[in-house]
Amino acid sequence: MVDLIKVTKTYQPDVTALSEITFSVNRGEKVFLTGRSGAGKTTLLKLISRIEPPTKGLVEIAGMDIARIPRGKLYTLRRKIGMAYQDFKLLPERSVAANIAISMEIVYRKNSFIQKRTRELLEQLGLQSKLNTPAAELSRGEQQRVAIARAVANYPEIILADEPTGNLDAETTQRVMGLFKELQRRDTTLIIATHDPSIYQEQRDRVIRLQHGLQDTSPPVPARPSEAVAQVDTVL
């Protein structure tokens, strides 16, 4: 579903954010992208959603080289991808419902569908009481959940989540991961960038580690939590 072949991203004058990254993610697979801050996780997600172009290499979505998509047709790619941004990108003066509705309005979903889906997501994420609250009045954790809800609302084929649990407590993290699991069952491909080992240690999903823009090819983190923590400490 998502293929990256020797992808390099360099920023002017000579800052290499990513170097020769190669991996594939299958349809319906959940992959964790880990690494310390500045490792290149966010950059990688931006390349996949073509917010930024790679300096070198190939990024393919469903077998299509996304660099070849004309600017005027980029919406076809963006509609396949739901992205939860690290900085949330919410409209502060709009209500929670309006923020979530945006991703459904642009594809002209019926109002009844939008309302039902919004309520359903807010319930899953424990925000049902915040439906009409302006986004600016929410805590960071709540804003993060709204950003996740907006990303998944329109059932995209791929979900890219950038530090989706960074501001959440353990219980809410479980809710979010539960939502992702449910989407995975619907054959949605998930790429989750995180530096929080607790959310991937207990999972059997693949972990792609980044270190200073390079893909860390050392053996994968073991399944047992204690070993995983040790492994991460070594990497860090």
């Binding site: 005027g72 919406y75 642009i106």
Partner: peptide, 9 residues
């Protein structure tokens, strides 16, 4: 944001 979520021109 509209561009990012896939709104057409």
């Amino acid at each position: 944001l509209l561009r990012l979520v896939g709104a057409t021109n």
